[in-house]
Simulated assay, not measured.
Amino acid sequence: MMRFSVLASGSTGNAFYVETERERLLVDAGLSGKQLEQLFEQIGRHLKDVTAILVTHEHSDHIKGLGVIARKYQLPIYANEKTWKAMEGLVGEIPTDQKFVFPTGSVRSFGGIDVESFGVSHDAAEPMFYVFHHKGKKLALMTDTGYVSERMKRTIEHADVFVFESNHDVEMLRMGPYPWSIKRRILSDVGHVSNEDAALALADVIGERTKRIYLAHLSQDNNMKELARMTVEQLLVNREFAVGEQFVLYDTDPKIPTDLAYV
């Protein structure tokens, strides 16, 4: 069985963990090495047992601790070529035998987990996220995209579990303290998905097997857990989904990992 935890999610740092009996994968390392070690301790795991790190893109809230933990624990890192190039100078020297290319739009097997990479729309070199397949179960991870295309929807649809971006409330962002240049970037097609757009996209991809949806990458300044959950739930109810019965919505946190859960 496949298990997972959203170790940390938000504008200050992101890390996601998925395991089977044979494999233990970390997606992104956007916190300090010490913070990542503490997060692993909280779910009863240890970084030394990780078998690979998968990188989504080069922004600091996704790679802050990458170089430190990769060197300390001699962990292999997988990223596409453009992301590797963009990370030069940001993660320090990584030994060649720990560097692997994972092309966007491909599938790579890690033990019994087939990991499918797919491109998203974000202001990074070549951002991509992942779908994890194991023994008929499907776990879809997608944040850091300005919109959700039909191609993305086809890739992630009918997952058992979604970890899905619900970054901001549009009115909070518009009325907030950010400079207009940053607001415009967040609202753009290469920015982040709002609560409303997250719900509309989820309505198109939720399937009969969907049991859990984790709202992720919430902005600390332009969103609140309760607001994100309420907005997404209401829009899904309006689309005649039985939220709380058919599937359950879960919060994520920038500092507290979610419980290890089965897919």
Rank of each mutant, 00 (worst) to 15 (best):
D97F: 12
K99I: 11
F102H: 02
P103R: 03
P103S: 08
T104H: 08
T104P: 03
G105T: 06
S106P: 02
S109C: 04
F110N: 07
G112T: 14
G112P: 05
G112F: 05
I113D: 10
S117P: 13
F118N: 12
F118V: 14
G119E: 15
S121T: 13
S121A: 13
H122T: 08
A124F: 07
A124K: 11
P127S: 04
P127N: 07
M128N: 09
F129G: 05
V131E: 10
V131Y: 03
H134N: 04
K135H: 09
A140D: 11
L141T: 08
L141F: 14
L141D: 10
M142V: 13
D144Y: 09
D144M: 01
T145L: 08
G146P: 11
E150S: 14
E150M: 13
M152D: 10
R154K: 14
T155Y: 02
H158V: 04
H158Y: 07
A159S: 15
V161P: 01
F162C: 05
S166V: 13
N167H: 15
N167I: 05
M175D: 14
M175E: 12
G176W: 06
G176I: 06
P177G: 12
P177Y: 12
P179E: 02
W180T: 11
S181K: 12
S181M: 11
I182M: 13
R185F: 04
I186T: 14
L187Q: 12
D189W: 11
G191S: 01
G191W: 03
